[in-house]
């Protein structure tokens, strides 16, 4: 059996949840990476980029492991078999949790995501299909149940009234929320506002509560992780 360790992310990946002196030599692998990605996705208010390669690798590893287990089930004793199954199940749970938290965000912000190219590109092909269908069903339902029965000026799903200047019925994520995050690298002095009056010194492994909007870039460059 092959435990496919090692990926490009590994190099960037320090220890996960230890606080310095408690550090241990746990091997960075796709499971750890997926766990971090899931945590980031769950903690971030907006939808983050889909981890195509990672999900692909994890899927392959699960499939391979299940194949092997089926093939060697006879020769393994019950204890070992159940331990291997636990390993696979844990990873499957993680993968599902990741995909699910994304789906819940897609449903919540479907209209907003579809109207913002940058966000739309963060979805996988399947997620885009899901979002499209979701919006189709939603608009049909809204039309049939309420909007179709209202006057022309009030029958839009994205505007309160025809006189609204903006699409004020579209739910957008609240980016001025606060997140708990840990810096993975020495980011150093980091500016929290446009004027440069609020700065914070981000040291590796330290935990902070920061406003999401200014630090979202750091999440993209993998300098911080959300907890």
């Amino acid at each position: 059996m092959d435990s496919a360790n090692g990926s490009e992310e590994d190099a960037l990946w320090g220890n996960d949840d230890d606080g310095g002196q408690w550090s241990h030599q746990d091997l960075p692998n796709d499971v750890e990476v997926l766990k971090r990605i899931w945590r980031n996705e769950k903690s971030a208010p907006e939808i983050l980029g889909y981890e195509t390669l990672l999900v692909e690798r994890v899927r392959e590893q699960i499939a391979l492991m299940e194949e092997n287990l089926a093939a060697y089930a006879e020769s393994l004793d019950d204890v070992m078999l159940s331990l291997f199954e636990m390993d696979v199940n844990r990873l499957m749970f993680l993968l599902r949790a990741y995909l699910r938290v994304r789906l819940s965000k897609i449903e919540k912000f479907a209209l907003h995501i579809m109207r913002t190219a940058e966000l739309w590109d963060r979805l996988s092909a399947q997620e885009q299909e899901y979002a499209q269908k979701f919006v189709d069903v939603l608009s049909k339902h809204m039309h049939d149940s309420v909007l179709g029965k209202l006057e022309k000026a009030y029958d839009s799903m994205v505007k309160q009234a025809a006189s609204s200047e903006e699409n004020d019925m579209i739910v957008e994520p609240q980016l001025d929320t606060y997140v708990f995050c840990r810096s993975k690298t020495a980011v150093g002095s980091f500016q929290l506002d446009d004027k440069g009056d609020e700065t914070v010194d981000l040291m590796p492994n330290d935990l902070y509560i920061l406003r999401y909007r200014p630090v979202r870039g750091l999440l993209g460059t993998d300098s911080i992780e959300l907890v």
């Binding site: 092959d2 499971v31 696979v88 990873l91």
Partner: peptide, 11 residues
């Protein structure tokens, strides 16, 4: 006594 477990999360 048990052989090494080659798991997805590590050996």
């Amino acid at each position: 006594r048990m052989d090494t477990l080659h798991m997805i999360c590590g050996d």
